[in-house]
Amino acid sequence: MSRMQPTAACVYAAILLLAAAFPAAAATGAAATLPKAPESFRARFIETRTLPGFDQPLVSRGNVTFSRTRGVIWEVTAPYHYVFRMGPADAEEQMPDGSVRHLDAEHAPWLAVVRHIFTSALTGNISELRRYFHVQVTVLRVGRRIELTPKPGPMAKAINHISVTEAGTPRSLRMDEASGGRIVIRFLDAKAAAETP
């Protein structure tokens, strides 16, 4: 076989599409909180994940540090320690047991989508976000609320709606998943910071 067969190629692409949809869509939630974000910022967060079929939600706390040029560090400090770093070229996560899992764009194509949506959201590039979402912006007394509804496609099969409020820096995010699950993140003490990751 001189190269990948076109018919088989469709299948790989399709599988990757669906596989990619989960992380891409979820990352959008974290990313879209920051339209017209400052060059860099730091915040604490409290994340509440409600699983369908479970009464008890999972609450975690941590810090997020963002730099427009160098990427993001998402650090969970409680109930266990976990770090997710996404740089310009690759990403890695430090698991609760201390082991590190590396993700490079070549073997995780969704990473490029995640980074693209992430950058678009952080740079306030609404037209790029509209590739994936219907975007509605409501001006509040302080700040704005951005409503993201996925366009028909694999992402819409995973996410129903994303709502983000911001006032220069992100304040909160709520993502309703198609499965019935929900993620709510509150950002505390968010402030532009000279220090970058």
Binding site: F22, P23, A24, A25, A26, A27, G29, A30, R49, T50, L51, P52, L58, S60, G62, W74, V76, Y80, Y82, F84, E93, M95, P96, D97, S99, R101, V114, A158, E177, A178, S179, G180, G181, R182, I183
Partner: peptide, 17 residues
């Protein structure tokens, strides 16, 4: 460890659990 990591990952979704 993997379940905990998945819950903490900002790119992870609860529905997948």
């Amino acid at each position: 460890n993997d379940v905990a990591g998945e819950f903490a990952n900002p790119a992870g979704m609860v529905g997948v659990f």
